[in-house]
Amino acid sequence: MEKNKSWKTLFAAFFRIGLFTFGGGFAMLPLIEKEVVEKLGWAEKEEILDIFALAQSVPGAIGVNTAVFIGGRLYGVPGAIVALLGVVTPSILIILIIAQFFVQFQTNPYVASAFNGVRAAVVGLIAAAAVRVGREAIIDRFGLVIALGALLLSVFKIIPVIWVMVLGGLSGYLYYTTKGGQG
């Protein structure tokens, strides 16, 4: 725990994590494990899985949540903020640069054609993510009903997305606590 402990290494470690992980979320976890467990020794190997579980079961992006947890454990709230700044700074800088160009070149015919291809890919990408998440998340018939209900409520804009999530959490609570377990 004590080795490599400094504000600078904390910021730099999460800056690297933010800079070198594409696709966000789960893509960050292997690099976080390498930096935090293997290189810096800030957490034990068995511990890190528990930390990832926590990061996934509270609000916020997973990479950001992990940064907050590790930083907070090392230096309290200021440490959490430093780690958080480290992990988001690369994103902010890169996106700001791209945003400048995007506004300028959006109407350029070559850029427009290229983005027609990108848009097609994005549809496939999100659909694939839906299948991947669905395989993990839908474990019984109740889950299937909830997932389809959420899909329909959202596509036809029947109620706001937030209420869909609240309803899902509530029905999960009622169903699984009264049924006394999953399955």
Binding site: A130, A150, L151, G168, Y173
Partner: peptide, 18 residues
């Protein structure tokens, strides 16, 4: 139990986004 209800919602919402 609450998360067991939220997880399938997330799957449905990603499908809706697609």
């Amino acid at each position: 139990a609450t998360f067991a209800g939220i997880r399938p919602v997330v799957a449905g919402l990603v499908g809706a986004a697609a």
